[in-house]
Design a protein around this nucleic acid. Structure first.
Lengths: 218, 218
DNA sequence: GCACGGTCCTGACAGTCGTCAAGACCGTCC
DNA sequence: GGACGGTCTTGACGACTGTCAGGACCGTGC
């Protein structure tokens, strides 16, 4: 995994005052703002349909600047992916921290899953898009597998807390539990994006019903 | 759902002898052979990277012919999707038919899942590609949702047979069970495509372990 | 005030894409 | 044998893509 902040051109000191003459913020901050714009565009159009000109048009820059901050399109995309990961890894930490009973945790977890689809559906379909593209494009695999592993441990932390609160151990390995819940989540997202009004409430009910099955019998 | 055999140009009688002068087979058969070539190319490159010229290059035709048999690229793709569906819907019928005990069925089902990844991985990643693209492109949604529903009932038939053989009912609704198994399958496919040598044996073991959890206690 | 250099814009390049018009090919029928 | 018409090829069109060279802009340091 190469450094995230490896720029397109040589960059001796990102925080040097000489770098702040145009635009606002540091070199890295403007990279991140470009990544922000790119993620919005990617989430709206999908990976394949998003061009660098479109990303630039939805940002404060012009299309030529992208190659000043990123070597090529692939570097921009992978930077965006890693940048995005940082925002979603801690999504359920609050659920784990604030729940004091098993029922509370299950409810909060289901609530959070629903909320994250209703407020960030474009970002999530982008993630599934990139994960699927990684099956065709080797350049994406390293990042995708890393993020997938991160999500798996995130889910596992929820389940471990759930197991601790019930006193019953999880009876599935981490990878299986994650794959199952991810399948449920992906399907709910698809239905939601397709305009199915009941997708979210069904997701909520499904999670309430399915989580207990992941634990061993009392 | 519009008719699958609605051609790009008016087509009064597909089986008329006048249509057989060039090439071999009927108009519809040549459409299907074009779809065959397109599916191979799509499975190899992915939806976004597959151009009509590339499809034609991997077929017996030239790129201009595609617009003789299909109105535009979208019609070709959706035709391919429906054409493909017919080949995968009956995939587990043999498993259901030939299994006489629950253990036999679980084994045969797991075997089939592994086999279908090892022999048809490109086709499956294409399916996931198209399903994800349907979250961005409304033109694909109708076909994707239809196929997804078909796959769900296919899985449900397996589970119903499993329930009958054990005498224990499935304790999850059809949609949840399908989403969970699909998540497991998708993850195994991703790992397999990424070169993980243990992806398939893990899938096998996972299915053996997970299927009993879908049934109510004895 | 002037040169330097980081930042950004403009315009162009070659390549690829979907699409389609024009016509060649050729089996069939009068 | 000649006309017909379904089938297929060729070549082109405009639009779009990622990339990059050239130079404009402008804050900083001398």
């Amino acid at each position: 995994m190469t450094s995230v902040s490896a720029g397109a051109r040589q960059q001796d000191d990102a925080s040097s005052s000489a770098r702040r003459r145009r635009g606002t913020g540091s070199y890295d901050e403007r990279r991140d703002r470009l990544a922000d714009s790119a993620l919005v565009t990617l989430g709206s159009l999908g990976y394949a349909r998003t061009s660098l000109r479109e990303i630039a048009a939805n940002s404060e820059f012009t299309h030529g600047v992208i190659h000043y901050y990123f070597r090529d399109k692939t570097e921009l995309i992978t930077y965006c992916v890693r940048y995005y990961k940082a925002t979603c890894v801690k999504r359920y930490d609050g659920v784990i921290r604030d729940s004091t009973t098993a029922e509370e945790l299950v409810q909060a977890f289901a609530d959070k899953l629903v909320e994250t689809i209703s407020t960030e559906a474009p970002m999530h379909r982008l993630w599934y898009d990139l994960r699927t593209q990684s099956m065709f494009d080797e350049a994406l695999r390293e990042d995708v597998l890393f993020i997938d592993a991160t999500l798996e441990t995130m889910i596992w932390r929820v389940l471990e807390r759930y197991a601790a609160l019930t006193g019953r151990p999880v009876r599935l390995p981490s990878s299986t539990a994650y794959a199952m819940l991810d399948g449920v989540f992906e399907r709910a997202l698809l239905r939601h994006v397709c305009g199915d009004a009941r997708a979210l409430q069904d997701l909520h009910a499904t999670v309430l019903g399915a989580l207990p099955l992941l634990l061993a019998d009392a």
